[in-house]
Write a protein that binds this DNA or RNA. Structure first.
Length: 286
DNA sequence: GTACTTGTTAAACT
DNA sequence: TAGTTTAACAAGTA
């Protein structure tokens, strides 16, 4: 599931190879993925260039011109994979088991560039979308996101204030993009584990020390996630079709039934919190 | 065949 | 009314 570190990895990968290339053609094989009218979308994109790639939370923002921006959300199973002409489609030493040949049966949109390279949007569950919007709409969408864990405006006092009086679980608060942008199911469980806080705890009941620890651990898991190029748990691949390295760093997510890596005595338990599969150590997370 | 998976949002609930 | 929780979406896996 692409969360902030995965989307940021894709953003960096694609920025290196896509910026300034002329888009020769775009092919839409599943219309519902593109939120615009197909013809309108093709007319604006063809012949244009991506001049910058931004990101807010888990949303990618490709700058097309001073007027238009292409918003791309991968949701749960979306992939954006770039192939240059030399390697060719489906070749090389990429993760064929996940990726298959390109375009594959889950490829819904394909961009072809003037130098023969291509960008494939794949999405097994078809939840993701591409949406071409004007600048004003882009700013409105951006404004709906809270601060990112590694940003300067995600301050300790912001976080303490956020939790104050909240009656929902700490997990629900951390997952809500309007308060903190970029955390998803995996990194929330990891952050709670590092901080020694149970994900099901009512947010407003954390003491000062716990809230401070959790603030730090949110920043830590996101920073490390980016450092290791994201987590491949189900089908995430980076912009060049490779797996993320943070999977090996996970301390609780997916470890249900196994011994806790910190206290060695607790058994990692899986339960539903905020409607999501949630992993924690019942002994050392309070 | 059934239960389960998740990011986001709309709808339902308290 | 506001805050919070749940259902729905889709298609694949166990």
């Amino acid at each position: 599931m692409p969360e902030l570190p995965e989307v940021e990895t894709i953003r960096r990968d694609l920025a290196k190879v896509l910026i300034g290339k002329k888009i020769k053609s775009v092919d839409i094989s599943l219309s519902k993925i593109v939120r615009n009218d197909d013809d309108e979308f093709v007319n604006i994109i063809q012949g244009a260039k991506f001049t910058a790639i931004e990101r807010v939370g888990k949303l990618l923002i490709f700058k097309v011109s001073t007027k238009y921006y292409l918003l791309i959300h991968l949701k749960m199973t979306g992939q954006l994979i770039y192939k240059d002409k030399k390697i060719g489609v489906g070749g090389g030493h990429t993760q064929r088991a996940l990726e298959g040949t390109l375009p594959g049966k889950h490829t819904h949109v394909t961009f072809a560039f003037n130098d023969g390279s291509k960008l494939f949007f794949n999405d097994l569950r078809r939840f993701g979308y591409l949406h071409l919007v004007e600048g004003a709409m882009k700013d409105i969408v951006r404004s709906k996101y809270g601060p990112e864990p590694t940003a300067k405006n995600f301050t300790s006092s912001y976080f303490h204030q956020l939790l104050k009086g909240k009656r929902s679980s700490i997990k629900a608060v951390l997952l809500n993009q309007k308060w903190i942008a970029g955390l998803g199911n995996i990194y929330v469980d990891e952050a709670c584990f590092l901080a020694g806080v149970r994900p099901a705890r009512t947010a407003g009941t954390l003491n000062k020390r716990q809230a401070e620890a959790l603030w730090k651990s949110c920043r830590q898991v996101i920073a490390e996630g980016i450092k290791y190029r994201g987590t491949t748990f189900s089908n995430y691949l980076d912009g060049l079709g490779k797996r993320g390295g943070y999977s090996k760093k996970l301390k609780v997510f997916g470890r249900q039934g196994k011994a806790c890596l910190r206290c060695k005595r607790g058994v990692i338990t899986k339960m539903r919190v905020a409607g999501r599969g949630t992993h924690y150590c019942p002994l050392c997370q309070k």
